[in-house]
Design a protein around this nucleic acid. Structure first.
Lengths: 330, 330
DNA sequence: ATTTGTAATAACAACGTTGTTATTTGTTGT
DNA sequence: ACAACAAATAACAACGTTGTTATTACAAAT
C-alpha cells in the first residue's frame, strides 16, 4: 500500500492539510513542524500522487515533443538538447513517435502543458490546438509561436567567410526537392549571397534530392564525376556533410588543402567527423534554450511571446576551411 | 471551461453516475439512455479527465519506453514497431530519453503500467523496481522477464546458409569491444558454427570497434587493404552493413557476384539498401509483438510470464547472397 | 390488491491532493 | 484579567471520475 499525506498526518500528529502545506513549503506552517513532517515523509518514503495533484492543480509540468525524423543526426541532437533544457526547468519531457494528430490527442489526455512541433509537420498542422504549441522552422501561418533561424543570413555568413579566405568558386550542396522551407531558405540564401559577390553560377548548386547522408554521398560522387571543381563547398546539413566528406575522402581529396568544406548545423558533433568541420548556424544549445524558454513563457501567458523569433547564426571555426593557396593548413 | 460528466448529466437529465456507466458501456443502464448519453457526449465534445480516471482506477494504460541509442537504425525501427504494437492494444507509449534512473522516476510519477528497458542499460539496472519492467537482450540476473533472441542460432543459420551456397571462406564483421552481450553472442555463434563446419580461422573475425555505420565502413576498408579475401561476409547489424556495403561498392565489388553479404537484423529496411540485403534474425514485428504481449501479460499477472523468452531467428532472402561460382545472380 | 422481484437510475463515498475558511492557541497591550 | 490580534493548525470543500449501495418504478405472481 502506498503512503499518502494522511498517513504522514497520523504519524506526525497533525492534520493532513498541514502536511500538504509543509511539503509545499508553505509559510503558513511553523518551520519546526515543517522540518519534522518533511523528515517523517522522507523516512516513510512518501511519494506524492501525481494524478491527484494534477486533478486539483490543472498543471502537469510536462512538455510533449512530437519526434521528427528518426533517422537524422541533427534533429536527434536538438531533441536531446531540448530534453536537457527542459530538465533544467521544473518540467519534464515526454516523446511521442506517432503522427501529429494522434500525438496531439495523447498529449491532451495527459494534460501536458505544452507541445513542441517540428517544421516537418507544418502541413497537416491544425489551425487551432487545445494545447499551447511551439513550432520550430520557418514561419508559416500557424497561430503558434515559431522559433526560426536566419537561414539566409547563415548562408551569407558562410559565403562571406569563404570569400574572405579567397574562394571564388563555391558550391552549395543540399536538398532542393523538399518542401521543407528551411532547406529552401538555405539554398535561396546561398544564391543571394553569391550574387552579391558577383560569383554566382547555376551549376554551383548541387541537388542531393534528400537529407540523408547517403544522398549527400551520391550527390558528391556525381560532382566528382563532373568536370566542375569548386574550391569550397557549403553543405546544407550535418548528414549531407557526412556523405560529402565520405565521398571526398574516398577520392583522396584532402580537406581543407584540396577543398574547403563548411557545413550548416552548428552542433558539437561536427568536431567528431573525420575532419572537424567548420560549421554555421544557430548553436543547438541556443535553439533549445529559446524553444524551451519561449514555450514555458507562452504557457504562462500567451500574449507575452512574439509570434516569430529568429535566431542569429554564427560560424564555429574548426579545421575544414583554408585560405585559398594555403596548401599546409588553416 | 472543459466539459465533465456532470455537465452531460445535466443536459441528459440523469445523474452523473449514470453518465459514467453509460460511457463505460455498463450493462446497468438501459441501451436507449446509453445511446442518448453517448450522443450528447459526442455533441458536446466531452473528453474524460485522465487524471481523475487514474486517481480512482490506479491504471494509466500507458507503457513507458526508455530510448536506447539515438543514432542507430535497427533500434529505431524496433521502437517504431513497438509503438505500433502498443497502439493496437489499449495502451499508449511514451518515450523518455533520460538516463535509466531519471526515466524510471518519471515513469513512476506518471504511474505508467509498465516499462520497457533495453539491454544497453542492464548494467545499472536496479535489482528491484516499483514498476513492472521488461528487458530486451540477453538474460542476466534481472528479476524481470527478458525477451531474448537466439543470436548464436542466428549465426549458425547464417553460416549454414552460406556454406550450402558453397562458401567456405566466410568472414564476420561486428563489434567485439562492447560489453553488450548481444554482440558477444553473435560473434560466439559465428565462431562456433564455423568450427562446426571445420572452416574457422582467427582472422575471419573483423572488429569494427563500434556499432555505427562508419565503424563498419572503416573496418571494411581495413579488410580491403589486407590480403584476406573472403567470398562471403556476415555482418552483425544493419548499421555496420550500411558501412560495409558502402566500402565494398566504393572499391567496385559487385554484390553478390564478387562477394556475398548477409546481415543480422531482420528489418524491412534491409530491402532499401543499395543492394537489398539477405538478413537473419528474429523479425522486428515478432520481437515487438513478443515484447508488448509479454509486458501486458506481466502487468496483469507477474507469475503468468516466463523469465526468459528466446525468439527463433529466420533468414529473409533478398539478393545479396549467391552460390559460389555463380557470376550472374542468385 | 398486495407482495415480491427486478430493471433502471440516483445518491454517495472514495481516490489523494490543494486552497480556502474556520478554529484553536498564544502573545501583546491595557 | 481580558480584549484584540496574530500565528499555527484543523476542517472541509473542491477536482472529475468509478464502484457500491440506496432508492424508485414497474412488472409479474400470489
Amino acid at each position: 500500500m502506498t503512503i499518502t499525506i494522511k498517513d504522514l498526518a497520523l504519524v506526525a500528529g497533525v492534520s493532513y492539510s498541514t502536511v500538504s502545506k509543509a511539503l509545499n513549503d508553505s509559510s503558513l506552517v511553523k518551520p519546526e513542524t515543517k522540518d519534522r513532517i518533511i523528515k517523517i515523509a522522507k523516512e516513510m518514503g512518501y511519494e506524492p500522487n501525481y494524478a491527484a495533484q494534477r486533478l486539483v492543480s490543472k498543471e502537469s509540468k510536462v512538455i510533449g515533443l512530437i519526434w521528427p525524423t528518426l533517422e537524422r543526426v541533427a534533429p536527434s541532437v536538438l531533441v536531446t538538447k531540448i530534453n536537457e533544457e527542459i530538465s533544467k526547468s521544473s518540467y519534464s519531457m515526454i516523446l511521442s513517435v506517432n503522427p501529429l494528430q494522434t500525438s496531439l490527442e495523447m498529449f491532451k489526455r495527459f494534460q501536458v502543458d505544452g507541445v513542441i512541433i517540428f517544421n516537418e509537420y507544418l502541413n497537416d498542422m491544425p489551425a487551432t490546438s487545445p494545447l499551447p504549441c511551439l513550432t520550430y522552422g520557418v514561419k508559416k501561418d500557424t497561430p503558434f509561436p515559431v522559433i526560426d533561424v536566419n537561414y539566409q543570413g547563415a548562408m551569407n555568413d558562410a559565403v562571406t567567410y569563404l570569400y574572405e579566405l579567397g574562394h571564388r568558386d563555391i558550391a552549395f550542396i543540399g536538398d532542393l526537392t523538399t518542401d521543407d522551407e528551411r532547406q529552401i531558405e538555405k539554398a535561396a540564401g546561398f544564391k543571394k549571397a553569391m550574387k552579391n559577390f558577383g560569383i554566382y553560377q547555376e551549376d554551383h548548386i548541387l541537388d542531393t534530392k534528400g537529407l540523408g547522408w547517403y544522398d549527400g554521398y551520391m550527390a558528391t560522387v556525381r560532382l566528382i564525376n563532373s568536370p566542375y571543381r569548386p574550391t569550397a563547398i557549403i553543405s546544407a546539413s550535418y548528414d549531407i556533410s557526412a556523405g560529402l566528406i565520405r565521398a571526398l575522402r574516398q577520392e583522396n581529396y584532402m580537406i581543407p588543402n584540396d577543398i574547403s568544406v563548411l557545413s550548416y548545423d552548428n552542433i558539437p558533433q561536427m568536431a567528431n567527423m573525420e575532419i572537424p568541420l567548420t560549421s554555421v548556424g544557430a548553436p543547438v544549445e541556443e535553439i533549445a534554450q529559446a524553444m524551451v524558454q519561449t514555450l514555458t513563457r507562452y504557457i504562462k501567458d500567451p500574449d507575452s511571446v512574439p509570434a516569430v523569433q529568429t535566431l542569429t547564426p554564427v560560424i564555429t571555426e574548426r579545421s575544414s576551411c583554408a585560405a585559398i593557396g594555403t596548401p599546409t593548413e588553416k
